[in-house]
Nucleic acid binder design. Structure first.
Lengths: 197, 197, 197, 197
DNA sequence: AATGAATGAGTGTTCATTCAT
DNA sequence: AATGAATGAACACTCATTCAT
């Protein structure tokens, strides 16, 4: 089992699971629901994944990979660290705007499972965040960013980007009414070392 | 049914539920688990709460009330808006430090249930957040705070406060190694209108 | 227990049970429902009845007694057996018309419980039917009624009377559109020995 | 789910349910009891039926179909309406004699559920009764039968046939001691328009 | 590779009954 | 006499998982 003999169906199962997690608590998504959504028999899932947890894990991995790829492809090369950071920020926001489901699912799974449990080799995965984290770490070393724990910087960036994208996605306001520049400014002000002021 | 003649057990049930939600997905907390933790028979729960949902709702209400009370009692009177905001910030951080479980549970339940579903009178409840929101709104009107959607301001404040408290709670670092002043500064910089710089 | 210190409440409990049985399967009527309908606590029922079966039994006894009393009081004295029979028939129909619930409940309980289980002394109870049965038996002995098993005569009488009353009660037709005389004629034709024809 | 790939077990479940309903109130028959009787796990039932209600419904349909088939096959062709009626009567009695459980179960389910709820296409189902009803209706139009509500005619026929069969089945008397001819006569006298007398 | 069948453990919920007060 | 509290057993139903085909 768990061989991906039919890659299409493998993707279909993950797709269905993603959509279900997007709308419900992770814990409420059942293999029955997934199978029904794909239009296959429930036991068929166990040919592609060795159990429910394995399915969730692969969902997580695929979505994180997609995000990494997107961000990597979208960010423009920059000469200095600040430019690189700004570029990553914009890429992440683009991703959040275009793939609100992906980001939502990633965060939901992260909250339900410990990170260790999800990824075997933490390094090569989660490259999107990894690149961001590298930038943030460098920025802290050069005194560009504040000397708070990395998780706070990361959180300030990601949570605000997601919130802005979600608000737009849910029609709370349009991108024109609340331009991303303001959010970017908020994040900059938060992250950057205030020595400038 | 649903009478609360024995307030001790009523509280015990809620306590047990809080601890279980703190450690798992809300959806995974079962009445069986709760009953086992309290040491009563599962059906006994239905004497104190008419539903599983009712139990969760009451957990939410109790925790939110406690937080409101704490913040209300802890914040010191301030002459100007900024002082008031700073005071609220500190009070929230104190709460997050002393009651990390409460904050965690409140956020988890909020994510699973819609706010409308949880509270009958949204106004008088959740006063802690209500007070903060009032302050933020006023600050925006006077030009003190940035003109982004309120939810972003609120998120920047609460998520960073919670993260800092959690990091300390989990032993990632001590309050001495990473003083709250830095987090407060991050929040100030994020929230305040940059016109000052 | 089971003392009827407060006869009012005793009757209230039976009343509520009667109404509930009228609308549901006997097996679906719970002490919880009864207590709620009366406005007392569930355990209170066990002061008046020693268990659920005992309650049902007393419901049955009371309703049967009421029917007996009604029929006994309503039938007019008759000189011959046929006149007596006709009078009983009319009395039963009057009862069915005025107390459709009672008749319904009696039949429902009879179907769920064996008769032996319901009444301790089968003789003195169920006097209404007893009187009818006596009449039928006499009629058979004198050759007035058909020589089929008594239960068939009884069934033909009671089931048709109930059906007619129910149809009227449910608005299927009015007593004017379908006068009882026709039903009485049907019963007479069925019961009476055809030698007359 | 709900596929009927293994027709044997599907029938076994229905058989067990029929026997249980025969002996108890419909409302008291539980999926646990049924499963135990068949010797399968309780959850297995939900592979063959989507609900407890669905199970009951299928029990009803199967029994009614069997009765229809039996009556249809058993009745002999008749030249006139009266002969047809007499033939249907005899067929119904044969069925009641040979399948007392079926008839009992059909009536019990009918009392608990509304007819509409039980069958999708009321017309083609329940053909046994349907044929009888057609005969009765025709008989009323030609003045052969009494002008009472159809339900009374139907009741007089079915209830007496069932009672006679049950009495024999329970050993109250033998078919020799109380020949069906007498019951048939009772029904004829009841149903037929008395103008003959 | 795919499915239907099967199961045991789990869910929330209701029930009849008992008991201390 | 009356009640709230408590419980164990039952219920309908869903789930993740396994297995033979």
């Amino acid at each position: 089992m768990m061989k991906k003999k039919n890659p299409e169906k493998y993707q279909q199962i993950i797709d269905a699971t993603v959509q279900l997690i997007d709308r419900q608590d992770v814990a409420m998504v059942s293999t029955t629901q997934v199978a029904k959504k794909v239009g296959i028999s429930q036991s068929n899932i166990y040919i592609y994944f060795k159990n429910r947890d394995d399915l969730i894990k692969h969902v997580f991995i695929r979505e994180v990979d997609a995000m990494s790829q997107f961000v990597h492809d979208t960010q423009v090369p920059a000469t200095d660290l600040f430019g690189q950071f700004a570029s990553q920020l914009d890429a992440l926001f683009q991703f959040a705007l275009q793939h609100p489901t992906s980001l939502n699912v990633i965060q939901k799974i992260l909250r339900s499972y410990s990170y260790q449990h999800l990824v075997a080799k933490p390094d090569d995965l989660n490259a999107a965040n990894a690149e961001l984290l590298v930038t943030l770490k460098k920025g802290q070393q050069t005194g560009l960013f504040k000397q708070v724990d990395l998780s706070l910087l990361q959180n300030t960036i990601l949570s605000n980007i997601k919130l802005q994208a979600d608000n737009i996605h849910h029609g709370k306001y349009t991108a024109a009414e609340q331009p991303f520049e303001r959010v970017r400014q908020l994040i900059f002000d938060a992250i950057l070392n205030g020595s400038r002021s």
